[in-house]
Measured scan of single mutants.
Amino acid sequence: DSWHDTVDGIELELHGADEELLKLAKELLKRGVSEEEVRRIIEELLK
């Protein structure tokens, strides 16, 4: 799946992010949310 590559990229960027955020990112990508949107959501949550 192409979203796996996206998640791997996000995981590299979010090496400090907790497991729950990564699960959320994967779930959003699986549901068709764009990579940009996922990054934006996670950045908001990390604030």
Rank of each mutant, 00 (worst) to 15 (best):
residue 1 D to V: 14
residue 1 D to R: 00
residue 1 D to C: 01
residue 1 D to H: 12
residue 2 S to E: 13
residue 2 S to G: 12
residue 2 S to C: 05
residue 2 S to K: 13
residue 2 S to F: 12
residue 3 W to Y: 12
residue 3 W to R: 02
residue 3 W to V: 14
residue 3 W to G: 10
residue 3 W to C: 07
residue 4 H to F: 12
residue 4 H to I: 14
residue 4 H to K: 13
residue 4 H to M: 11
residue 4 H to L: 13
residue 4 H to Y: 09
residue 4 H to D: 12
residue 5 D to R: 00
residue 5 D to T: 12
residue 5 D to Q: 12
residue 5 D to K: 02
residue 5 D to C: 05
residue 5 D to F: 05
residue 5 D to L: 08
residue 6 T to L: 10
residue 6 T to N: 12
residue 6 T to P: 10
residue 6 T to S: 12
residue 6 T to H: 14
residue 6 T to R: 13
residue 6 T to V: 14
residue 6 T to G: 10
residue 7 V to R: 04
residue 7 V to P: 12
residue 7 V to A: 11
residue 7 V to H: 11
residue 7 V to I: 13
residue 7 V to M: 14
residue 8 D to G: 13
residue 8 D to N: 14
residue 8 D to A: 14
residue 8 D to C: 04
residue 8 D to W: 02
residue 8 D to V: 15
residue 8 D to F: 05
residue 8 D to K: 05
residue 9 G to R: 13
residue 9 G to P: 12
residue 9 G to H: 12
residue 9 G to W: 15
residue 9 G to L: 14
residue 9 G to D: 12
residue 9 G to V: 11
residue 9 G to A: 13
residue 10 I to L: 15
residue 10 I to C: 02
residue 11 E to R: 09
residue 11 E to C: 08
residue 11 E to M: 15
residue 12 L to T: 05
residue 12 L to Y: 06
residue 12 L to W: 10
residue 13 E to D: 11
residue 13 E to S: 05
residue 13 E to A: 02
residue 13 E to R: 01
residue 14 L to D: 04
residue 14 L to V: 08
residue 14 L to A: 05
residue 15 H to Y: 03
residue 15 H to C: 11
residue 15 H to T: 11
residue 15 H to N: 13
residue 15 H to R: 05
residue 15 H to S: 11
residue 15 H to Q: 13
residue 15 H to G: 12
residue 16 G to Y: 13
residue 16 G to V: 09
residue 16 G to A: 03
residue 16 G to H: 08
residue 16 G to Q: 04
residue 16 G to D: 06
residue 16 G to N: 08
residue 17 A to M: 15
residue 17 A to W: 15
residue 17 A to E: 07
residue 17 A to H: 09
residue 17 A to K: 09
residue 17 A to C: 05
residue 17 A to I: 15
residue 17 A to N: 07
residue 17 A to T: 08
residue 18 D to W: 12
residue 18 D to H: 14
residue 18 D to A: 09
residue 19 E to K: 10
residue 19 E to G: 09
residue 19 E to Y: 08
residue 20 E to G: 08
residue 20 E to R: 10
residue 20 E to K: 10
residue 21 L to F: 06
residue 21 L to S: 02
residue 21 L to I: 13
residue 21 L to E: 01
residue 21 L to K: 01
residue 21 L to Q: 02
residue 22 L to D: 04
residue 22 L to E: 06
residue 22 L to H: 06
residue 22 L to Q: 09
residue 22 L to C: 06
residue 23 K to I: 07
residue 23 K to L: 05
residue 23 K to Q: 13
residue 23 K to N: 11
residue 23 K to R: 11
residue 24 L to R: 02
residue 24 L to W: 05
residue 25 A to H: 02
residue 25 A to N: 00
residue 25 A to M: 07
residue 25 A to Q: 02
residue 26 K to I: 15
residue 26 K to V: 10
residue 26 K to R: 12
residue 27 E to K: 05
residue 27 E to G: 02
residue 27 E to Q: 05
residue 27 E to P: 00
residue 28 L to C: 01
residue 29 L to Y: 03
residue 29 L to K: 04
residue 29 L to P: 00
residue 29 L to H: 02
residue 29 L to E: 02
residue 29 L to R: 06
residue 29 L to V: 04
residue 29 L to C: 07
residue 29 L to D: 01
residue 30 K to G: 13
residue 30 K to Y: 08
residue 30 K to A: 15
residue 30 K to Q: 10
residue 30 K to D: 15
residue 31 R to M: 15
residue 32 G to Q: 01
residue 32 G to C: 02
residue 32 G to S: 00
residue 32 G to A: 01
residue 33 V to L: 12
residue 33 V to W: 14
residue 34 S to V: 03
residue 34 S to C: 05
residue 35 E to T: 09
residue 35 E to K: 15
residue 35 E to Q: 12
residue 35 E to L: 15
residue 35 E to D: 04
residue 35 E to N: 06
residue 36 E to C: 02
residue 36 E to D: 10
residue 36 E to A: 11
residue 37 E to F: 02
residue 37 E to Q: 06
residue 37 E to H: 03
residue 37 E to W: 03
residue 37 E to R: 04
residue 38 V to Y: 01
residue 38 V to L: 01
residue 38 V to W: 01
residue 38 V to I: 06
residue 38 V to K: 01
residue 38 V to P: 00
residue 38 V to C: 02
residue 39 R to F: 08
residue 39 R to W: 09
residue 40 R to T: 06
residue 40 R to F: 05
residue 40 R to H: 08
residue 40 R to V: 05
residue 41 I to W: 05
residue 41 I to L: 05
residue 41 I to E: 01
residue 41 I to Y: 05
residue 41 I to A: 02
residue 41 I to R: 02
residue 41 I to D: 00
residue 41 I to T: 03
residue 42 I to N: 00
residue 42 I to H: 00
residue 42 I to R: 00
residue 42 I to E: 00
residue 43 E to G: 11
residue 43 E to Q: 13
residue 43 E to V: 09
residue 43 E to T: 12
residue 43 E to N: 09
residue 44 E to V: 07
residue 44 E to N: 07
residue 44 E to K: 04
residue 44 E to H: 07
residue 44 E to Y: 08
residue 45 L to T: 03
residue 45 L to W: 10
residue 45 L to H: 05
residue 45 L to A: 06
residue 45 L to M: 11
residue 45 L to Q: 04
residue 46 L to R: 08
residue 46 L to E: 02
residue 46 L to I: 15
residue 46 L to G: 03
residue 47 K to D: 06
residue 47 K to R: 11
residue 47 K to I: 11
residue 47 K to P: 04
